[in-house]
Amino acid sequence: MSSMTAPPETDIVARAVDATKIYGAGETEVTALDHVTVEFPAGRFTAIMGPSGSGKSTLMHCLAGLDSLTAGRVLLGEVELGSLSDKQLTVLRRERIGFVFQSFNLVPTLTALENITLPMDLAGRKPDAGWLDSVIKTVGLGDRLKHRPSELSGGQQQRVAVARALASRPQVIFADEPTGNLDSRAGAEILEFMARAVADLGQTIVMVTHDPVAAGYADTALFLADGQIVDTMADPTPEKVLDRLKGLGG
């Protein structure tokens, strides 16, 4: 199964073609991705769902150039990641990709603001002041910008992480369980904010999660099991997602 048709009017930001990832060899061989072909359209909020061990994190890591495939291709826009050197991948990550991890998103020695501008600073690029202002305003961190991560709550830290991902206007933001470490209220705040970034700012977000509530904020949900895409769901709701997951045995 495995192919997903994007709405014809949108561009494809990222895609995997026949992507296969095998860890280990022989007896201990584990197939994390099994010939996955998938496309992520621009301006959409896609949730990748699946039970643990389904390969959802591996898929995201490969799409983001953090991990490499055993076989198949991953493309960001028209660039095939497999052909890039470490240096080119690094530059690609900081120029065209934004990241939000589950935890430890921020460099503890830098202030919130410095963390937000980090990818641009690494690139030696001046951030667009107007855009930065509006991102910071949307995230609602105005008065905490000079604080170190250790002085921020978990929710605030994740908001800084999202602001960092947005600040460099990447083609796509990959979020790996962004609410995994938060209570439900702080989690909801982050998810709302991400959804708004997609709706209002036209940002593309790909989020890995196992939480049906989180998936409910997405435009589309993909379901992975045993390294293969088993289903696609438009306009998911927590209930629908939960049902589907139960069907997958997750």
């Binding site: 953090l66 470490d86 240096k87 690094t90 530059v91 990550r93 900081r94 120029e95 990241f99 991890f101 430890f104 998103n105 921020l106 460099v107 980090l118 990818p119 690494l122 690139a123 960092r164």
Partner: peptide
Amino acid sequence: LLRAVGET
């Protein structure tokens, strides 16, 4: 993290 967000 630094490497992920673009430190060469």
